[in-house]
Write a protein that binds this DNA or RNA. Structure first.
Lengths: 215, 215
DNA sequence: CTTTTCATGTGCAAAAATTCACAATGTCTT
DNA sequence: AAGACATTGTGAATTTTTGCACATGAAAAG
């Protein structure tokens, strides 16, 4: 299907970037876009855009550019966001709630099918989306029942690895971890860690560096 | 101060990773750690750890390893998390609230000094941390007054770039953007974008790929 | 005091990712 | 129908990042 076996990881990340402005253009914008313009909208190099897309086929027309509708469709197919993907969340605090209610998740086919929390106070509560908060003990049973594919961890830091293990044991194949630890998975299971503070520390480093080189 | 002028960007990211297990070890664990063990805890290669650290000095003792306390201290100094860093947040929804109340931010010296929202309903409300939600029109005035260094954007997608411009105009030097767009900055200003759905799409791609190669 | 042990720090090689530069190839104009 | 023009797709060059392999140096043991 694809030209090479191994697609670079950064390419996958950028495909998701590319889809954002394409969605806007689809609603209001010219029906065709050049690699130069798309690159500019995403803050990357035009050749990068072309090379990234070329891994998966020849989607463009020389001298013209890429058809916005077609390209978006292709990217969604590649990233498998054209199908519904059942998720569950563990940890229904502020962060968890904001994810469950997040528009962008639903819009891309990510549907929360279950919510868990270890706090007995919260268990049994009904969320705005209709889900009932279940105790962590039921992770295994419920995930198998509802064919959950991806587990989202929004617990405090110290519970995260334990929850991760529970989820993998429950047949979940991927983990999105928002607790500030690197959770570890074995074998074919994949975990993505999102850590806001890492990004902040990055900013702080660069700001601080500027100060030093100035003074 | 440092051995080379240009420190690789991935190195900075990893320094933040390294600090996580070090904080745990500081509380309960051996006072010394080898690059091998630290690498293992962070899921990277041991030589990578050594090389990353070596950019900033010789922190280890040959034949022994790194003193946990010293190393953590050095990393915090490098990342400038040893000083308080004044933040503001724009967009006090679920996500915004969860950030303001986030323990890890405070623990690393990131203090929210102002909160803004464009919704008149929210303006004037008092948050649990004591801050009063201000209208976006006051961003310029308040940020200058309180010497805000970094602005966190937790608005819906479409307002993000406008808010970013407001913040930069208000003298903020870095942006942490949590809306699913790439916000653009000019000159010395730096923006970090955090997009959960990008990570999910990454997971989805890999899961889907496994399916295909199986069947 | 010498030897052994162990893990760091680092020059160098390999791998990965990015960018360049241009041939290929489509559309538009006349 | 032919030439001008624009933009893709891609091999080659460059840059960046990672990993190897070993000399180096500190501590512990004999």
């Amino acid at each position: 299907m694809t030209k090479v076996d191994k697609i670079p990881e950064p390419t996958i990340k950028r495909l998701a970037f590319y889809s954002r402005p394409l969605e806007d253009l689809l609603e209001s914008g010219p029906p065709v876009i050049s690699s130069e313009r798309l690159a500019d909208l995403c803050g990357v190099h035009p050749a990068q855009v072309r090379k990234d897309l070329a891994y998966f086929g020849e989607f463009g027309v020389r001298g013209v550019g890429y058809d916005v509708r077609d390209l978006l469709h292709e990217i969604k197919r590649i990233l498998a966001t054209d199908k519904a993907m059942p998720l569950c969340i563990v940890g229904v605090g502020n962060l968890g709630t904001s994810l469950i209610e997040n528009e962008n998740f639903r819009k891309r086919g990510y549907v929360f099918k279950a919510a868990f929390d270890s706090d007995p106070e919260k268990q049994g509560q009904k969320l705005s989306c209709g889900l009932i908060i279940e105790p962590n003990q039921r992770i295994r049973e419920v995930c198998r029942e509802r064919d959950i594919e991806i587990g989202v961890i929004a617990t405090p830091r110290h519970g995260a690895q334990r929850v991760c293990n529970l989820l993998l044991d429950a047949g979940v194949r991927g983990i999105l971890n928002l607790a500030p630890v690197q959770v570890r998975t074995s074998g074919a299971f994949k975990a993505e860690n999102v850590d806001f503070t890492v990004k902040l520390e990055n900013l702080a480093y660069h700001l601080h560096r500027l100060d030093e080189s100035d003074g």
